[in-house]
Each structure stands twice: as C-alpha cells, then as structure tokens.
Design a binder for these strands. Sequence first.
RNA 1: GCUCCGAUAGUGUAGCACGGCCAAUCAUGUCAGACUCUCACUCUGACGACUGGGGUUCAAAUCCCCAUCGGAGCACCA
Length: 496
Amino acid sequence: MNKIAPELIAELKEKKEPEKGLPPLEVGGALVMRFAPNPNGPPTLGSARGIVVNSEYTKKYKGKLIIRFDDTDPATKRPMLEAYTWYLEDCEWLGAKPDEVVIASDRIDKYYEVAEQLIKKGGAYVCFCEQETFKALKDEKKACQHRNEKPQKNLEFWKKMLAGEYKEQEAVLRIKTDIAHKDPAIRDWVAFRIIKTPHPRPEVGGKYCVWPLLDFEGAVEDHLLGTTLIIRGKDLTDSETRQRYVYKYMGWTYPETMHWGRVQIHEFGKLSTSGIKKAIAEGQYSGWDDPRLPTIRAIKRRGILPEALRKFMLDLGLGETDISLSLDTLYAENRKIIDPVANRYFFVWDPVELEVEGAEPKIAKAPLHPTRGGIREIPAGTTVLITKNDADSLKEGERLRLKDLYNIEVISISPLQVKFIGTDMDLVKKEKARIIHWAPLDGLKVRVLSPDREFIGMGEHGMEKEVDKVVQFERFGFVRIDSVNGDEIVAYFTHK
RNA sequence: GCUCCGAUAGUGUAGCACGGCCAAUCAUGUCAGACUCUCACUCUGACGACUGGGGUUCAAAUCCCCAUCGGAGCACCA
C-alpha cells in the first residue's frame, strides 16, 4: 500500500491527526491583522486571546501584525499612560511582538478628513437632537430634522464642532445608514462626539474636542492599515454592518471578519477593568499584578510561562459560543513545561517544632530534581520544623520518615514527642510508612502569596538563588521565587 | 420590544461546508491502580456528550423546520 499509493497514506494520517487549535485560513494575498485594545488598563487573559490568536495566524501565514491602540475616549474609558507600555511588554512576552504600532489618538486628523469627505458625499450629518429625542425617533424608524440638511450646511456645522463652538452633548456627527433598517442597532449611528476633557497623553492633551467613536475610528483605520482579516469579540458583530456604510460611501473594500464568544474564567468571575482599578485604589489588591487578578502581569508573576498561555489560548479555537473555563487546563499545560526543569525544595508552612530524641545533627542529601540529578544539602539539627497539618495528623506510636533524613516514631501527641529510630529505608518500603517533609530551624523565612491565602513558614537554603525561577516546594506545589528581602523570600504560588 | 448569533462528556475542543468510515477525537478533570524517599511527574484502567421534537433520506452529530436554553447589539463605552 505504501508503495502503490503513498499519498493516500499521507492523506489518511492527516485526517487522523487534524490540526489542533486554530482552523486553517484561506489567505488569498498578504495577510494583515491587528490587535486593537483600549489601553485603559493592563492586558488581561482576555486580551491574551486576541494577542495570541492574531500573532499565531500572522506567523503561520507570514502576515503582518499590527497593534493599534484604540484610545479615542479621554473621558469614560480613559486610557492609562503606563498601559501603552504594558501592552507592548506583554505582547513581546507572549511571543507576539507586533510589526507595527499605531496609536489612534495620533491620527485624529485622518479621521477628520474622512468625515469631511463623507459629509460632502451626503453620507454624514451633524445632529443636534438630544439623545432621548433621537432614540424615540429612531425606534419609530423616523428621521430627525437634521438628517436632510444640505452637505454644505453640515460642513459648516462640522467646522463649528471642530472649532469648539458647541458644548458637549450639543452636537454629534452621524453616519447616514437606513433609518428604517430592520435592525435598530444599525440606524444612523454616531461617528463623532464632543469631549472637552483633555486626552491623558501629553502629546495630544487638549488638542481636540471632537473624538471619533470606535466604529468610525476602527473603520477608517482598518482601511488605512490595509487590514485583511479582523478577528474580534462577537459583541462587535454589528459593527461590521455599521462600518460597511462608511466603506460603501468611500468605495473601500471591507476586510474579512471572524468573531469569538465571551470568555469567562471560573477563578476570576466577572471583573471589569474599571472595577479592578477602583479596588486597587481602595487597597483591596496590591496592584495590577496581584495574584488574584486576571491580568497577564499577574499570571506572569505567578510563574506561568508564555508558551503555556499561548497553547491554552490556541486550544480554545475560534468558536462563537460563550465559554466558561477553569484555569486547570492552563496549569496542566504549564506543569508539563515546568516539571522537568523545576528544582525541588522543602518549605514548611505553619511550622511546628519537632524535637527528635536521640537524633544526631546530620546533613540531609536530597535530590534537586527526582530524575535530572543534582544534590542539595540541608543541615538538620536535632530539632526540625514540620507543617502543622502533618503534626496534627500524627498518631501515637506511628512510625514515619522525614524525607531524605531519617525515621522517627511518635511517643506521644500532647506534648508532641518523637524519637529517632534509624535511617533505614525499609521502614518505608516494608511498613509503608508515611514520608513527610521538614525544614531546618535556621532556614529561610518564606512567604508564599497565592490567590486564596498567604502562607508563612520556613524553607531550606538554596532557593534564594532561584529568583525569578519556578521551583517546586515538595508536597506543596510549584512556586515562582519572586524576591529576596534580607533573609525573607517572597514566592508566588503557581499551581499544584 | 426589535435584530443578529450560538448549542458535542464537569470543562474546553475535533467532526458539521461535500450525510454513511462517529456506539463520536484530543486535552483537562474525577476515581482506581502501578511507579516513586513529594500529595508532583510518569504509566495503566475506568467515568463521561451529539439540547428536545418533527421532517428529508436506504442512512443524520452533520441537511430542513419548530421549540427550548444561552449570548450579543439597539450608548455622545471600547
């Protein structure tokens, strides 16, 4: 068979193992994609999906990846200056360095030009209706009095808008669509509104008082940037219908589009950027990289590797269904990468002193890693520390082993008394004795920050050399050594 | 109210464009066991799904209709 029709075999194999993750794309010419966040906070796990998927496609099809900051709302969703840098940092960390960076607030004049052309073509008009008035008319498929104004007149109004002659709320520029469109979401939408709050970027500041809305800014940018494929959340599906009016007036070609559903993560629930911002200000979180937050910065700090996060996001595919997922899969992905390389250490949380009768001081020799080799030496006195959990579970007469050290027998529970009974591994092999871990009395103070709680305890020496690395605290879980302050180690819990 | 969209195991996904090879893929999870001086890793096994009802057809997860459930938009937010 192999000789007669090797291509059939190849085809069979291909069918057996379909490409995981993203569906293949039919790319005609060059592929240009963009990721377009509003930098009003740092990138989150949700942003990561956009960054990863866009970058994966542009990598795969040798396309161009653009990051475009849609920062055209200086008031309601006001951009944060630091966030521009954070996005670029996090993109790079995720292996998605953009080929081009565009900031919308730098390009307002370009949007004005298009607006002017649209007005001249009769595709846009200045509307002075109050919001409620317009909505009432719109719901009845009725045009307002401003809709039929001559382009010449509209141009005049527009210039006045730009000159700052109107107050906020007084006038907007609307795109003329179909006032009787069966979908009310499409009828004559707002393209520009007046905002007198200065933009946070010093380069822009109070330069403009007329700002485009996302649908307009995005429409113009996607044309200017030559975007060929847009992938975005399904909350923006209607944007396409709206934006197509602009494209039609201008004679442009609309990009291909794909949409995905909303992602909710069990561990984080519903957290909005503005909600988090408030909570940080109130001191509920230590900052944007607090381990309880779903930001990329926090995930990074906790020791999740970018490869794991990429794989996790890619495996979600591109469904339009809303998904609700747990981070377990991400952790499993990360563990696969980390387990073979992470060194092992003892860390005793909620420590309890254990004096071992009849023991001699000894230097324990434990493997740095169960299969990779390497030895760590831990000097143990006659008193060691064990975790309260283990201490509480001891039974009178129980014989057990302190890992990599020696065997003990419990004489009494209260007061807790144990005695040395040898070093023979047979105790474990034959009696199936429990093995518990321990820490030396003169170890390092360790604080572990996890999303649920903070662990304080003692760890063995050596881990202070692992700053910024992920290690495993045996019988505890993986942890990223974050910093060393004097004799105290701060670690972030990664996962079990 | 109007308009769109979606529905495969606990979770996420493959299969659906071109119906049969699907008593349905892979991953994660849970449980059990093996290995192991960690409750980690690895290995083995088990568990577990086509939302419901009609229709078309020799044949439906796949095509059509209805119902149900879920989501999104109808902002001078992104």
